[in-house]
Design a protein around this nucleic acid. Sequence first.
RNA 1: GCGAGGAUGGCGGAAUUGGCAGACGCGCUGGAUUUAGGAUCCAGUUCCUUACGGAAUGGGGGUUCAAAUCCCCCUCCUCGCACCA
Length: 813
Amino acid sequence: MKYNHSEVEKRWQKYWSSKNLFATNAQPKKKFYTLEMFAYPSGDLHLGHLKNYVIGDVYARFKRRTGYDVLHPVGWDAFGLPAENRAIQLGVHPEKSTLDNIKISADSFKLLGINCDWEREIITCLPDYYRWTQWMFLLLYKRGLAYRKQAYVNWCTGCQTVLANEQVTEGRCYRCDSSIQKRKLNQWFFKITDYAERLFTGLDKLDGWKENVKTIQRHWIGKSEGCDILFKIAEKDIIFSVFTTRPDTLYGVTFMSLAPEHPFIDDLIQDADNEQEVRTYIEKALARSDIERSEKEKDGVFLGYHAVNPATGEKIPLFVADYVLLEYGSGVVMGVPAHDQRDFEFAKKYNLPIRVVIDPPDAQLDPDTMTQAYVDPGIMVNSDRFNGMNSAEGIAAVTQHLAKTGLGGPSINYRLKDWLISRQRYWGAPIPIIYCSQCGSVPVPEKDLPVLLPQDITDFVPKGKSPLAAVESYINTTCPECGKPAKRDPDTMDTFVCSSWYFLRYPDPHNDRIFCAREAADTWLPIDQYIGGTSEHATGHLIYFRFLTKVLYDAGYISVDEPTRNLFNLGMLMKDGEKMSSSKGNLVPVRDFINKHGADVARLTILAAAPPERESEWTTEGVVGAERFMDRVYRLISENASVAASKVPSTYDHKQEALMIKIHQTIAKVTGDLDTFKFNTAIAALWELLNDLYTCTLHDEVFGFGIYTLIQLLSPFAPHLADELWSQVGGEGSLTNRTWPEYSDKYLKDKITTIVIQINGKVRSHLHIEGPATQQKIEELAYQDEKIKRHLAGKKTVKKIYVPEKLLNIVVR
RNA sequence: GCGAGGAUGGCGGAAUUGGCAGACGCGCUGGAUUUAGGAUCCAGUUCCUUACGGAAUGGGGGUUCAAAUCCCCCUCCUCGCACCA
């Protein structure tokens, strides 16, 4: 009898949905909220997209069967550039193409047998969802965490929109790889920097996150402890604050550099002799992309002014230099050529003095012969009263001295920047702000939410301005405060805003009074297990959703200040050595594959290939293995359906003891592996049990119990096959909500213990012992062993190491 | 440059606290069954060696009775950050 996967899988999927088996219990006794990272509706999905959800499905099914009331929802991150670009390509409205795609994508989920509570499905591009995204914006606005400012921002030349810092990698757009330019624009930001410290220290609590993800986040937040120092301009009444981590080098400062974007420059150069030269330099710097700027030789232009070194009273020249970043510290750098490599190069180029103020512990530096900066800590010299201190002491002492004299003091800086959320695109949640010539920026009142995206628009093509700006009926409105004509903000929000709070909607997805009722939030939060790829999200989504959670916690809407303690990282699914993607043409379409081989085969192939956290390769060899496993299980069980027995046999033939033990060991192994996401070794254990059942000739109750157990253990991995076999052996309904099998400790230990006999650490023989044995007894047996005798001939025993029930090592000379 | 992770048979990958390296699968070899098989079942399969035995977890050193596992140095691969003052 051949297993007919399409008939069986369709039948069970229909059964599951007709019985509503994956519905969430709204009053859980023992809640478990498990969630895979938000899905992007790309239409006909390929298996690379779905690895995430297969892993999550296995885990959710296991949790269901081990006594939890599981919340396992699904939804769609439906706004955003890819969806909009596709719509433009097809010449249809993005809402239509997105909703069509969601249908197709959801079908792929269902075809794979993924268990989700579809009642709680959310779609971010629909008004009943983005209304709350806008509400989040207003909440942040009210709390002073959303603000608009004129700033130099990342502009993607391809997408024709601005991007957040997190969306730029190596100076390029994370989506289209176009190079990024700086543009000075008036844009909305979320003040995530207010939370930098809490986002940083909060990582320590996340013990269920892998250390490497936390390290990436720490690095991204970039907490840096140092000192602010005030420098006065000699010729003008202007004071700069400068951040440094090395106040111990203060006496070595011989010049200062300002970022080209620095707002003070305009004032300084007005009517200066070299105004034109400076302006040209700044223009050139702004025109360069970030990478170009970072790769070119360090240069700058003297501004014609001097600063005063607060330590020495010395006048030092002031430059504008494009290696200085406006966004870090105060956009001004004190140049210490002797002890900073960049400053060294700069000083060499412009013949600025190099003053050694830190000597290595065991040597003296000579500024005339130095070929590079000495950047390590050392002993302070040429530093007046601080001479002789080491760097650590010096840093503290100088900082303290500056604080005492009012010239500076301790300071902490973060690399993290505020989150730029405006996008000059149509397909996003509109920013709920109205500009009135009388009242200024006015938030849309909550009662007027959602601000709906206009439907009567035909031209979505980005042109550097939001397409919404051209929609008169949308952009023109009245001021909520004074009632006079006013204009809406034409931009939409970054889709990362939608996905930074979606997990808060699932506990109460249909509520139209609040994003989530307090009671539902308290019932389900936090996420007990979050699952997803992390390399692409470690510095984006995974920081944003922590930020939003903390804001909502502070505002009193939820009781948790971290979204999840447990994050499981996934490795990507590859094919032919590359990431599965349509552009590479190496994908396995879900529908085609399932038609041919079935959902369970697809699942098993993914699961058995490698541990889920590791990158894994999809191969036809893997498919062959999965398929053979399915067929073998099906054949064995359908041919022996009548002997399956659910009870642990109380008496049985002595010959069957080994099988009895194997069955219990398999339950223990698979249960433990499911708990720790080691699905590949769990499947290996099922293979072992299957092989033992095949070679077992006596089809008694133990064998029957083995068959029963195999079906049970199979159910999270291959749920269709398991339910089908369950009904064949006379089981009722689906295994979905049945209690998970238990093992007994007394059957976990093998009857016969193998003891390794080593001589000088090399394995020379084995003893097979039944029952307990003393060291003395083992030694006795070992010395009688022929092989051991041979190796011991003419040698003297020096030492014996015995590890109970494992090994005896005889050291000889 | 800095940070993180990784390297185990022909291949994917297994190996609690250091204690039989190579579970399980793929492939391959042999056998059984079959009109036939790219189906199925059974057995074998790290390498060298006729055997005894020896070698082996990227390379080199060390600790230990014993190292894939711990320590030091090096090579290569993947990922993240990259003028952060």
